[in-house]
């Protein structure tokens, strides 16, 4: 009962043109001032919305559009690594923001084969990214999540990982051992 009153009131107030279900949708097809206003409104709103969307969408997906975040990061002198050993090494992510806190620190495994030959592994398991732990005794990397295991050269030994450990590119620049770090290693990487 109340509803009915409501409906009639609404019709009386907003529709001076009884017979057409609504003003706009009808007016769009008509020529004249009404039609022009409707077309102008639609255009202006579309243009305005499009303009507004540029920064909105831009900021929302900006991180993905950023240029290559990888930078050469020094891990210290090459001499700190002893042949035959694999060690966990800390480094600061070159891609950072002021509020990153602990997450700006990062780690990788450096395997020194001989003073000129290295392998640098990401700690993230190739299965789903959990941190693998190096066991120097059995010379294996083990993942605590789903049990992926890797040999000391990073190749897959057992478990669900589809491939071996991710590797960072490395170089020796003068007296500095550097890796190309910055982005979280993932399956869609070349190395």
């Amino acid at each position: 009962m109340t509803k009915k009153t409501e409906e009639t009131t609404a019709t009386e107030e907003t529709d001076p043109n009884p017979g057409s279900p609504c003003e706009g949708c009808d007016g769009a097809n008509k020529g004249g001032r009404r039609g022009f206003l409707f077309a102008a409104g639609t255009t202006l709103l579309t243009v305005g919305g499009g303009l507004a969307a540029i920064p909105i969408v831009g900021v929302a997906i900006a991180p993905a559009e950023a240029s290559d975040p990888n930078r050469w990061v020094s891990l210290g002198k090459p001499a700190r690594f002893k042949p035959g050993q694999t060690v966990l090494v800390k480094f600061t992510n070159p891609w950072d923001s002021p509020t990153d806190g602990e997450t700006n620190e990062n780690v990788c495994y450096v395997r020194c084969i001989d003073p000129k030959t290295f392998q640098v592994f990401a700690v993230n398991c190739a299965h789903l990214g959990c941190p693998v732990e190096w066991f120097a005794q059995s010379r294996l990397f083990m993942c605590p999540c789903h049990g992926g295991v890797y040999y000391e050269d990073g190749s897959r030994a057992s478990g669900p990982p589809p491939r071996g450990l991710f590797e960072y590119e490395w170089r020796i620049d003068g007296d500095s051992f550097e890796i190309l770090g910055g982005r979280l290693p993932g399956l869609q990487e070349t190395t």
Binding site: V87, L88, E133, W134, A136, Q137
Partner: peptide
Amino acid sequence: SRMPGFGGDAI
């Protein structure tokens, strides 16, 4: 030997 180190660089 099979006595591992528990300090220093060990994880």
